[in-house]
Design a protein around this nucleic acid. Structure first.
Lengths: 228, 228
DNA sequence: CGGGATATTGACTCTTATCAATGCCCGTGG
DNA sequence: CCACGGGCATTGATAAGAGTCAATATCCCG
C-alpha cells in the first residue's frame, strides 16, 4: 500500500523459537497438553506483575505489550514495547523483575520455561535460540540507555518514531498503539513534552499527524539525523 | 576489617562459566591451546571497540572495566562497570555494539565464543549458564533504565553508591575506581552534578569522603531510602 | 451527537547543564 | 625531601531544557 521503509539497522540471525516450537506443541488452542498455551488480554490488563513468580515466556501473536517497572511513588519506566513476533518474559531469577501489560487487546502464547529448558537438553539449538533472543533484548536495552542518559527530548521522540516505523513495516505511516503517557514513560519524559516535540517535528516538516495516533514520517533522512 | 554489608538484593542462581570452564581450559597463561586466554590492559586502554567484530567473551580477573556507547558528537553513555568475576562481551550479532575499556589496569580472560558454543553442544548446561549470565545482564540494564529515565540526581548517586558497596564487600567503605566523569556518564549526569550530590550527601550526614575516591557510607538505611 | 478520556497549548518553575574560577591531590624530578 | 605541575575535583553564577500546573481542544466510542 505504501512504500517500504529500508531496514538500515543490522538485524542479525533472528532465531525463531516459534519455529522450533511449532513442530512440538499441539495447536495453541488445543488444551493443557499443548506445549504453548494461547492467552488473551484486554486493553490495560496485566499479563504478569513485577515480583510475581516467573514460570513462562511469552510470544506476542497480536497486539502490543508494554514492559514496565515502578518506583514506590508511582514513577514508571517502560523498558520495551513488544509487537507481534516478539518474545518477552525472560528472567534471571524466578521472580519477574518488571511487569507486562496489554497496551491494546493482546493475544500471546505462553511457553513454560522449564519445558523449554528440558526440551533444550536434547536440541541445544533451542537454548541457543533463547540465548540469542536474550542478547537481542540486551542490545535493545543498551541502546535505550544511551537514549535515556544522553539524548534530548527531540532526539528521543525522533528515535522513537523511527523505531516504531522500523518494526511495523507499513512504510512511513506509523500507527501508534499507545497513548502519550506511555510514550512519555518509555522515553523518560512527560506527556506534555511528547506533545510539544510532535508539534516541533510537525513544524519542521518532518512528520504529519492524522489524529493523535497516526504519524506520517515525511522525511526519514532528516528524522534519522535528528535522532542523534 | 570493617563490618559486612548485608546483601539485601536477591542474587539468584549465579551460574559460573569460569567454574564450568576451569576444568576444561589449561591455565590461563599457558599459551595458544588454552581454552581461555589471559590478557592485560593498562588504564584507559581499549579492550574492544563498538562496531568491531565480536568473537570473544571476557571474564574480569582484576581491575574494573567500563562498557560504553558514543553518539557522533561525543556524548557518552556507560552502561556498566564490570568488576572481578563479571563476564562481559555478549553480543547479539557479530559486531560489538558497545566498546569496553579498562578503567584501571585490568586482567581478563578471553573465551572464544564459538568454542563456548561448540563445547555447549555436549554439555547443555554451559549454554544455559551463558543464557543465565545474559539474563542477569538484562536485569541490571533494565534496572538502570529506571534510574536514567525516572530518578533525580540525588537518587541516582545514592543508588550508585549502594550498588558499588554491594559488589565490593569491603563493608561500608567504597573505593571508587573511576573518576567523576565516568560516574557522570554512567548516571546520565555531568561531573559537576556528581560532585554537588556528593556534597549534598555529605551535608546530610549519610556519607563521608576521604579524598575524592574513598567514600564511607555512614547510613545505609537512609541512603537506600534516598535512592528511590 | 454527546461526553469522558486523551491530547494540545500556555505560563511559569525548577532541576540540572554550562561556563568559569579555584582548590586539591599525587606523582615526579630537582 | 620538597616544590612544581597537571590532571581531577569542588564550588559558584547563570542559562537552558524539561517539568508542573492549568486551561482548553480534540478525538473516539457508545
Amino acid at each position: 500500500m505504501l512504500t517500504q521503509i529500508a531496514h538500515a539497522a543490522p538485524l542479525p540471525h533472528q532465531p525463531d523459537i516459534a519455529l522450533a516450537l511449532r513442530g512440538k506443541r499441539t495447536d495453541a488452542a488445543s488444551g493443557p497438553r499443548a506445549f504453548g498455551i494461547a492467552m488473551s488480554f484486554g486493553r490495560n490488563m496485566e499479563i504478569y506483575a513485577e515480583g510475581e513468580p516467573a514460570g513462562h515466556v511469552y510470544k506476542v501473536v497480536s497486539g502490543v505489550v508494554r514492559i514496565s517497572k515502578l518506583l514506590p511513588d508511582g514513577r514508571r519506566q517502560i523498558s520495551a514495547f513488544h509487537t507481534p513476533g516478539d518474545m518477552f518474559g525472560f528472567e534471571a531469577d524466578d521472580l519477574h523483575n518488571a511487569s507486562a501489560e496489554a497496551v491494546t487487546p493482546v493475544k500471546v502464547i505462553a511457553y513454560k520455561w522449564q519445558s523449554l529448558l528440558s526440551a533444550g537438553t536434547r536440541s541445544t539449538s533451542l537454548v541457543r535460540d533463547l540465548l540469542n533472543l536474550t542478547m537481542v533484548g540486551l542490545r535493545h536495552t543498551q541502546e535505550h540507555l544511551l537514549l535515556l542518559g544522553r539524548k534530548n527530548a527531540l532526539e528521543r521522540v525522533a528515535a522513537f518514531l523511527l523505531d516504531m516505523a522500523k518494526r511495523t513495516k507499513t512504510g512511513s505511516v506509523v500507527e501508534l498503539a499507545m497513548p502519550r503517557h506511555d510514550i512519555a514513560d518509555y522515553l523518560g519524559l512527560t506527556l506534555e513534552t511528547i506533545s510539544r516535540m510532535f508539534a516541533e517535528l510537525k513544524e519542521r516538516g518532518v512528520i504529519k499527524l492524522e489524529g493523535a495516533r497516526r504519524v506520517h514520517l515525511l522525511d526519514l533522512e532528516r528524522l534519522a539525523a535528528m535522532s542523534e
